[in-house]
């Protein structure tokens, strides 16, 4: 690990905004990451969420993962938990859909109904 000096710079730069982030209630994006999810393409979906959330500078949003959500055919599955709101489950996700979910749902507060599980169960 060579560029630890750059990391020290990043620490200094981000310290202030980090302290702000602590006070906000967080939104969680949770991705199913069992064998079935990984085989169906969960990793690029996770990376797309990480990238887009970083680009949009959504400091109140954290990305995490869970095991099998129990609907292997609909993987990759992503659940969004927002404070005081019902959970939203998106299914058959792709990196392109992830970008749209970040922008429509997380930035503009509009659920992307066509990607939700309700739309597939019909």
């Amino acid at each position: 690990m060579k560029s630890l000096k750059d990391l020290e710079e990043i620490r200094k730069k981000t310290l202030d905004s980090i302290n702000m982030r602590k006070d906000e209630e967080s939104t969680r994006v949770v991705i199913g990451m069992a064998t079935c999810g990984i085989a169906a393409g969960a990793r690029p979906v996770l990376l797309a969420f990480m990238d887009e959330i970083g680009k949009r500078n959504l400091q109140h949003v954290t990305v995490s993962q869970t095991g099998c959500i129990g609907m292997c055919k609909l993987e990759p599955i992503v659940e969004i938990f927002e404070p005081n709101k019902e959970k939203v489950t998106y299914v058959k996700m792709t990196p392109e859909k992830a970008v749209r979910v970040v922008n429509d749902h997380l930035v503009n507060n509009r659920i992307v109904t066509e990607y939700t599980i309700g739309n597939y169960e019909k």
């Binding site: 690990m1 560029s3 630890l4 750059d6 990391l7 020290e8 990043i10 620490r11 730069k13 981000t14 310290l15 980090i18 302290n19 990480m50 959330i53 970083g54 500078n57 954290t62 990305v63």
Partner: peptide
């Protein structure tokens, strides 16, 4: 562990700038 040593307790590993680094 080495990254944490530089970042200290205040900057978490999932900070976007740290992820890019």
């Amino acid at each position: 562990r080495e990254v944490r040593q530089v970042l200290g307790d205040d900057v978490p590993l999932d900070t976007p700038e740290v992820v890019v680094w």
